[in-house]
Design a protein around this nucleic acid. Sequence first.
DNA 1: CTGAAAGCGCTTACAG
DNA 2: CTGAAAGCGCTTACAG
Lengths: 334, 334
Amino acid sequence: MKKKTSLKDIAEKVGVSVTLVSYVLNNKMEGRINKEVAQKIRDTAKKLNYRTNQIAKSLKTNKTNTIGLIVADISNPFHSALARIIEDEAEKFGYTVIFGSSDESLKKSDKLIDIFLNRQIDGLIYAASENAEAQLEDLIKQKIPFVLVDRYFPGVNCSYVALDNYSASFKAVEYIIGKGRKRIAMIGYKSDLRHLRDRKRGYIAALKKHKLETKSIWMKEIKREDELQQVEKAMMELMAEKTPIDAILFGANRIATAGLKYISALPIKIPDELLIVSFDESESLDLFRSPIDYIKQPLRELGEESVRLLLQSIGKKSVITQVNLQAELVIRNL
Amino acid sequence: MKKKTSLKDIAEKVGVSVTLVSYVLNNKMEGRINKEVAQKIRDTAKKLNYRTNQIAKSLKTNKTNTIGLIVADISNPFHSALARIIEDEAEKFGYTVIFGSSDESLKKSDKLIDIFLNRQIDGLIYAASENAEAQLEDLIKQKIPFVLVDRYFPGVNCSYVALDNYSASFKAVEYIIGKGRKRIAMIGYKSDLRHLRDRKRGYIAALKKHKLETKSIWMKEIKREDELQQVEKAMMELMAEKTPIDAILFGANRIATAGLKYISALPIKIPDELLIVSFDESESLDLFRSPIDYIKQPLRELGEESVRLLLQSIGKKSVITQVNLQAELVIRNL
DNA sequence: CTGAAAGCGCTTACAG
DNA sequence: CTGAAAGCGCTTACAG
């Protein structure tokens, strides 16, 4: 790579000081600088193909205009859709995004945070995983600006933007009940993550409110490993009962995809014999035999708001804002 | 944010020079440094919670250990899956990834490249869009290490890792022909991008080789805007013929998703009346009435190889390597 | 075995 | 209206 041109190169060429070049190229002291000199500097910069060295600038200004984004897995459609929105919103404010996938592992996220902090990110948008409390407290102690997205931790006093998972779940189950279903199951992840627990709580609460049966074997909790087999097993158990279930709520997009794959091989009438509602959008829902109802997360708001909150807390004293957005229930079987 | 501890802080605390601290923390001159002093430096670094300032280091070493990744849209499953693989592979070599979505727009990619270069990325992995030739020549002229992924440009002499799209398409159509189909259509994007043209060429070539009819109205080219409607219109036209088509090749995952949505409302027997093959994997293919055959891209190789080629060309004199990987045809209807 | 010093490419008070 | 100079936090030849 040939040497890049620096402010000094321009200064020498034009015959002025580096200071002046810096002012002109940054549009500072506009009124006070000789128009002609300024123009000459600009022309020369263009001619020499000058490019600001952000690294040098960052070192001096202590600002990198970079946001770190940690999600569980960038290849998960939910996360990549979120990433795209965050990218666009960040770009509006002159920020670039570096990203990493934690695979829900504390160790990996620790490592990512470490790398990101070494790189002097201005702030972090973070879909934290289980048992991240200590890690988050540490970020707070270090006064690193960050905003949680999608996830939240009751014991940790920090900003977040997430779904109101309890209400979303509650609403979905009430809708199912309204359709006359009585034997309603749910498959969710076995996890202490609050947002996932809230989904389960909403499910139970809606059943209780309407005095419907809540059987513990109807609340299936699966591990993330071998998702496909786990969901399959859960479905089999649910269908094996003498009086089978007549509705099911899938607690996440990947569970739905796995569940639908299983059901697609079965001769059940959907939705007549089994009403299905899922969390999150996904292609699978559209292309199943009959379109599946789902709980639509306000992705755009999630992404945009998390960027806005983060930028707000960067620099300024951090006001803690916690947002739980409402979901929309998308009904396709009328 | 409270002041971070620097090498100087450690040096003062221990009572040695900054030089020495730098050496120790970077494991340089290992044999030549007093063990005890070294240990003391390490201990103090840990105690003061020292964190390398990568920005300062980068300014000095002229290396950021950062890769820029530009895809059309990070929320497209194909791209996000690729991004994940690139992330993991880059991480193995100590690189972090910053990303941006170009939306197939030259203007946006120009802007992203500009931003990335200002940030002194060490190299770029780029899924370039139409008419990018001049832009790429410019990168070459500036000696920016970069590798194209997924896309390639016949006139541009640079490294790339992509599918052998011609063969993939050819193979898929031969498979269709082997199934006894005679009236085979294809829907692809209207685009001069070489990899997309190669898919069309492979389709035509296979038909010709087997002396099958090639009707121009069977080769539908749609615009990326209003994909859904465009595909719908194309499908309607194809189905409207007196003797309808008996097979179709979808030229990309989004086209397949749109096409399947349309077909799912139709009372056609799949695959008996219409054999469907699609480029790329996607959930839709699994959950359609009957699983859809597809051309599987070697995503892992694409991602890993692009990182490897890039790292190879960073620093070293760039050897140009062009790779066209073979696709795998995944058959589900036996 | 260790340190003083230059320098990476910027910004910005300060002085004139 | 303009410039000399310090300094951001590192690395690294050079000297001893």
